[in-house]
Nucleic acid binder design. Sequence first.
DNA 1: CCTTGACTTAGAGTCAACTCAAAGTTTTAG
DNA 2: CTAAAACTTTGAGTTGACTCTAAGTCAAGG
Lengths: 144, 144
Amino acid sequence: MANEYTIQQASKMTQVSAHTLRYYEREGLLNVARTSSGHRRYTDDDIGWIRFIMLLKSTNMPLAEIAQFVTLEKDGHRTIEKRRTMLEDHRETLTAHIAQLQNYMKALDEKIVYYSEVNDVLLDCVTNTPESNGVASCDDNYLP
Amino acid sequence: MANEYTIQQASKMTQVSAHTLRYYEREGLLNVARTSSGHRRYTDDDIGWIRFIMLLKSTNMPLAEIAQFVTLEKDGHRTIEKRRTMLEDHRETLTAHIAQLQNYMKALDEKIVYYSEVNDVLLDCVTNTPESNGVASCDDNYLP
DNA sequence: CCTTGACTTAGAGTCAACTCAAAGTTTTAG
DNA sequence: CTAAAACTTTGAGTTGACTCTAAGTCAAGG
């Protein structure tokens, strides 16, 4: 239960490259124990924390903010309230972001419908001889 | 109905800075007419197109892909089918992305619940005298 | 003991998407 | 007609998040 992993093993377990793991440590997102010779040894807690970092990252939290979270963590349980608040704020941001994406999705759908319709019109143009039809849309290049 | 706008006006109308509008043009996302002296003149179609670019961008389409879209547009209606396909592919990507964010949201909620619970436990620790309770979690710093 | 592969660091390079600066030209208001 | 504001270009700088290189140290198998 007190497992330790090299950077390569940690990399495999978390799908984060060793390069990036070192980078995260330099940026203060991670604080990994070392052997006497200076090699990193990741614990299960570290692995869990890296997975959490990936979760925050995937939901658009910037590294700097994640680093701030870590700073709070170093100050122990006095900061738990603050950290929960950070997570809740982040949750709000994410909710808003998802809602906005769903709106964009609607707009995108409308564009797609529009393209389908224009395509139908143009198929008509092709079916008839080019000269035999003077519909403006057959010559239009622009599609908003 | 054949309105024309300077770059500043276009910027105001689309909320995209003049800097960025020039940048987009350099990157092939935009093709704006000029006055005889070389000043840009944006049409209503250009404004519509910029808004469309912003939509694609907001839904994570990289500029390079948007530029490819423009290239197809230049080739006229022969490429409409292709462009619709691109939009549909993009729609799929967006759908998947939203679904994933919703999953992350669930994971985030679990973390928040966890933090709330830990906080409750710690409040207990504070309420009782420090020495009178030997619960490990009162001293733990790590929160996965 | 030796080799091979894994590890270490500091610092440079990359990429996307801007963002700004400098030096010069054009437009417009008075 | 002139001064100020707006425009032009080329090219460099910035930011966030990596990604790689070089030069060296360490660890495990035969």
